[in-house]
Computed example of a mutant assay.
Amino acid sequence: MTAKYLVTGASGKLGQSVLHHLTETYKVAPADIVAASRKPAALATWADKGVQTRAVDFDDIASMEKAFEGVGRVLIISTDTLDRPGHRLIQHKAAIAAAEKAGVQHLLYTSMPEPANSPLLFAPDHEGTEAAIKASSIPGWTILRNNWYFENVFLSAGPALASGHWYSAAAGGRIAHIARDDIGRAAAAALIAPSDAKTIYTLTGANSYSHADIAALISAAAGKEIAVVEVPLEGLVQGMVGAGLPEPVARVYASIDTMVGVGGLAQVTTDYKTLTGLEPQAFEGWIKSQAGALKALIN
């Protein structure tokens, strides 16, 4: 059975958001959608709604070739394989090759802002994937360079609220956060767009914020003061190692601060509105809405 649209990583949070917006916001017929995952059993609710479900393993190119067969437009949500440097790029290149072989007409990919020459340690995965897409024979493609989700703030908010200190090596750099559900809506809009052009969108919130700005917003919502403490990069790494993170993982997380410090996440664009016709959700309002969850993080 053929379908118009396929979403990989469909059992994940972003994939679920994309499926929601395809079916509810844009009223795409469930029979025109394929939800693909390593865990197709986790997609039973979507299958009950009439969405096709298929097994896709990014380490098994045959599974991708089979899943992509007969589908016109495919959204590849970047995998979460960060513990093996370079492996994610291998997975993505295999997916692109499978899409070519299956005759996919338009490929979409979730990337990051300005991956070229970025100090972020996993940026080469995105840069290499973008290059492979551009070099492929697939007629059309869309690259969605997604800024950091609102929800990523919780990675820092927990330790900061517990200790009262936010240790930062970002040197006052800024981040134009965007809600994960806004990314899901924009990805769904791009997936069903009639255009077969080759396009790059950078999806951001309407404003950018420094760690000090974010700490102030969290402090106000949670009712506990957080002081931002600037530390050298190596100090940040060792602090995370001391808290129990494996050093390679700590270095990946610390490289986010380096990227923020050089302005890699500061750009604000109107690409979200171009795709959806809407303004992105406001970061300040979202932080206020999370007051209960933030207060629960205070020891």
Rank of each mutant, 00 (worst) to 15 (best):
T129V: 12
I33K: 01
I77W: 00
L22Y: 00
A10P: 01
T142R: 14
K134F: 12
E100V: 09
M64H: 03
S78L: 04
G128R: 02
D57A: 03
T53M: 09
V28K: 00
S17A: 13
H92D: 08
L108Y: 04
R73M: 05
L14D: 00
T53E: 06
V56H: 02
V71A: 07
S136T: 11
F58T: 08
T23P: 02
G128Q: 04
L82W: 15
L6G: 01
I138H: 12
V18N: 00
L75D: 01
G9S: 06
L6D: 02
S37R: 02
L144D: 03
H20C: 05
F68P: 12
I90F: 11
N146P: 03
L22M: 03
E69R: 14
D59Q: 14
H106R: 15
Y26S: 08
H87L: 15
L43M: 08
I33W: 00
I138F: 07
K101N: 08
H87T: 12
D83V: 14
L22S: 00
I138W: 09
A95N: 13
V28G: 11
A67D: 04
R73C: 05
D125F: 13
P40W: 12
I33E: 00
K4M: 05
P139D: 11
A131L: 09
A98H: 09
A55C: 10
L22Q: 01
F122Y: 14
K4C: 02
A29I: 07
P124M: 06
I143Y: 06
A47D: 11
H106V: 11
D48L: 06
A35W: 03
L19N: 01
Q16T: 12
D32F: 07
A116W: 10
V104E: 04
R38C: 03
S118T: 14
L89W: 13
K93G: 04
K93A: 11
R88M: 14
E114K: 13
S17E: 02
K134A: 15
W46G: 01
R54Q: 13
E130I: 11
K27H: 15
